[in-house]
């Protein structure tokens, strides 16, 4: 089980190396990196629910393992203040064949966005701040896996 919630940045290349090291049965690795979209904002702050966050992410990863034949998976999510362009989330899946790795990575992201207790607050260039609102499209993206 590889789930990390951290303030520090991460190195996607190093994470992929670690995910596949020593397992020559892996034929496919898919990764997703989410960045702070910086249009009109100076900073984005990520709040979360310590304890529940890690449990929710571990549960999502376990469900992906139950659904697809994965050799490995990793979920990293950053918290705290982040600058535009910063890496915010990383999901990688490893499998014998690409289909399972592609689908599992998308599944993990869809459920992370709707089930893991994170909240984004944006600080705008004009000095105002606002909490980002949840999107219905994220809910429907998770619904389609049922």
């Amino acid at each position: 089980m590889a789930v990390r919630v951290q303030e520090a940045d991460f190195d996607p290349g190093a994470e992929l190396e670690a995910l596949t090291a020593g397992d020559t049965g892996i034929g496919a690795v898919v990764s997703f990196t989410g960045l702070v979209r910086g249009t009109g904002i100076t900073e984005m702050t990520l709040e979360h629910y310590p304890g529940m966050t890690e449990k929710a992410l571990a549960e999502i990863e376990a469900q992906a393992h139950a659904r697809w034949p994965l050799q490995g998976a990793i979920i990293i999510h950053r918290v705290g203040p982040l600058a535009p362009g910063a890496r915010i989330v990383f999901v990688a899946t490893a499998s014998r064949h690409r289909k399972a790795a592609f689908e599992a990575a998308e599944y993990i992201m869809d459920f992370l966005k709707t089930r893991a207790p994170f909240w984004k607050k944006e600080a705008a260039i004009d000095g105002t701040a606002r909490w980002v609102e949840a999107r219905d499209t994220d809910d429907s993206a998770a619904e389609r896996w049922k």
Partner: peptide, 29 residues
């Protein structure tokens, strides 16, 4: 809502709960 760190509904019982969290819809990722 989450009761003891598990998602729950408004009609869920709070009997025996240690920790009840109330929050807006999540926006991570």
């Amino acid at each position: 809502v989450a009761i003891d760190q598990e998602q729950a509904d408004f009609d869920a019982s709070i009997a025996g709960a240690r920790e009840i969290a109330l929050f807006p819809p999540v926006t991570g990722g």
